[in-house]
Amino acid sequence: MHIMEGFLPSPWWQIWFIVAIPFLVLGLYQLKKLFAEKRETIPLLAVAGAFVFVLSSLKLPSVNGSCSHPTGTGLSAILFGPFITSILALIVLLYQAIFLAHGGLTTLGANVFSMGISGPIVAYALYVAGKKASLNTFVNVFIAATVADLFTYVVTAGQLALAFPAPAAQGGLLGSFSAFLVIFALTQVPLAIIEGVIIALVFKYIIDVRPDILVKLNVLTQNTVNRIREAAS
C-alpha cells in the first residue's frame, strides 16, 4: 500500500496530509491520557506497535505472482482504538520512508491515512459490532483484522485513482480504480487472511497472560474472559 515518493502530484499529497493530521492529533491526545491514567497498559502498547513493525516488514508472495505485505494494524486498533494506532503506523511508515525509500515523506499523509486511519477504523468498528452481537471473540478478531487489512489496500487504490483518473474512454475514475484494485486488493486477499489468523492467535496469548488489561481497556468483559479461560482449561 506504500505510495512511493513523488507519486502523488500536488494537490493530492497536501490534501492527504490535511486529512490525516486531525486523526494524529487526536491520537496523541489519547496517548497522553493513556500514559497518565492506564500506565499498566504501556507494555501492551509496545507489543501492538512491535507487531506492526514485524508484520509490515514481511513481504509475502501472493497467488497472482506478486508480493505485498500485511499491515499488522488490526491488533492495535482492537486494543487501543484507531487514533492511537495512527501514531504507531506513522512511526513505522517514517522508518520505512527514511531508511528504505519504501513509501515517501511527501506521500506520508496518504500512507498514514490508508494504513493507520481507515483500516484501523474499520477494524475497530467491526470488532465493537461483533462484540455487541456476542460473536465468538477469536472469530470476531479474525474478521476485524482481515477486513481492515484489505480495506487499507482498497483505500490506497482509491487514492491513486483519484490522483490518476484514466481517460474517459478507458472508464475514467472507476476504470483506474478497478485497475489499481486488481493490483492491490487481489494480491492482498490471502495475506489479509494470514494476518487475521496470526492476530487472533496473538490475541489468545494476551488473554492467557494479562486478561485484566483487556478488561481495563474495555476490549473484553470479565464474563467473556472467564468463559474463554474455562473453555481453554
Binding site: 513523488g6 507519486f7 502530484p9 506478486s66 505485498s68 490518476f164 494480491t187
Partner: peptide, 19 residues
C-alpha cells in the same frame, strides 16, 4: 512488489515523479 506494479502503471501514463 504490488507497490512497484502500481508505480509502473502510473509511469506508463507519462507521469514523472516530481521528487
Amino acid at each position: 512488489g504490488a507497490d512497484g506494479q502500481a508505480a509502473e502503471i502510473i509511469e506508463s501514463s507519462g507521469y514523472e515523479p516530481w521528487i
